[in-house]
Simulated scan of single mutants.
Amino acid sequence: MIHKTSWIWDKRFLRHDTGKIQYMFEGGEVVEPCEEFENKHRMTVIKEMIEKSGLAKHLVRQSPYEATEEDLLRIHTKSHIQRVQTECKAGTREIGPEAYASSETEHIARLSAGAVMKAVDTVMKDGEIRKVYAQIRPPGHHASSDQAMGFCFYNNVAVGAAYAIEHYGLERVVILDWDVHHGNGTQDIFYERDDVLVISIHEENYFPLESGQVHEVGQGKGEGYNVNIPVPSMTGDEGYQYVFESIIAPFISQFEPELIIISAGQDANALDPISRLMVTREGFKYMANKMRKLAETHCEGRLIVAQEGGYNLAYLPIATMGVIEGLTGIDVNWKDPHVLPKRKTPTTLFQAVDDVMNYQKRFWKFAEKKSFC
């Protein structure tokens, strides 16, 4: 049976306002303000890409609902929720490190978290729809149980995973985070749990600097269920493929999940202003396609892709097109106008993969290494 794919979207996501960046120098000189990287235009270009590429006709359109306080309390503290509510209501701009808000942000953040819950409902209850792309903002993977951070207020994928476990009785959920930044909030939330396998592939020595190292493998019951894969700049499509085949696919296969959720930040793309990982549309297509096949093998096709980062307005929709192509198995007949040179995988990537294997070999078996040199 070929399962349908859902697209969750709501124009209310555009109402979250992160304000403008302003640079001031000594003497009072100011550079013309510009919009923050995480702004509403990210959503409009993705939406237009989906519609005008023809992908929309292959997707089942759905609307999200807001997560309730009970839903948020599965992973967030009451004091955190109250702080976000109070400070957004007061119009406070920065309510955590690089977490910029407006008066409507708290409700939109609930909607973003609720969209992942809606995705869980869909893949668990609908016999025909087993794959979902949730086009949401604000993102969530930097939000810990009691801290807003890095454009994130509530941790959308964590809310969804906790909901799936409690409401549907699931025992094994995978969260794969391929955003260019480490999903520190998701790691913190599930660090001592063995029912959620958290895997993060991210650029090394990058935001947030205090987390995302290979030795962070989980604690207590959660030991071995947290996998960090920091990769070097210029890793590129073939480097990502090497990581997926060497580490991510065999780990997921051994875990045998009942549901897979992806924190899908397309900010590892080759033209993104705040990354250097050089992944193209084809790379994102490969990753989504690989995850689709793993979901079909291990969890009856149940796969949720939740939007996180991605900030180049010219290439973000193209990278996301690749994700949706891989998710649906449908190729768009369109030639990318960006001519990106093919780059050799840096040799430091292979050492990075070996480092992960050395820390994780107590917990997981590895596939035979493949050469992409």
Rank of each mutant, 00 (worst) to 15 (best):
S253Q: 14
T347I: 13
W364T: 09
G212T: 10
V173Q: 02
K47E: 14
G222F: 07
L209V: 14
E94P: 06
E106Q: 09
P230Y: 11
L170N: 05
F25P: 06
R137E: 07
L73Q: 10
P337K: 06
L327S: 00
G283A: 05
I8Q: 06
P257Q: 06
T186W: 03
D126K: 11
L209P: 12
F255E: 05
A56Q: 13
S112R: 02
T18K: 03
A134M: 11
P273D: 13
E26K: 14
D188L: 08
M321C: 10
H182N: 05
I274M: 12
V30N: 03
V174Q: 07
T77Y: 03
F363R: 05
G218F: 05
K89F: 11
E38W: 07
K369H: 13
G140W: 11
P33K: 11
E106V: 13
V180T: 12
R137Y: 09
K11W: 08
E94G: 07
H182E: 07
Q187M: 12
G301R: 02
M278D: 09
L316G: 02
E192C: 09
D177T: 04
H58C: 11
R137S: 12
S53L: 01
T345I: 15
A143W: 07
V159W: 00
I248H: 08
M124G: 12
I330F: 09
I136Y: 02
M124P: 12
V174A: 07
V196W: 05
V174D: 04
L197G: 06
A295L: 02
N39E: 14
S275C: 15
M117F: 01
F350C: 00
R15P: 00
V180W: 06
P97K: 10
T68Q: 12
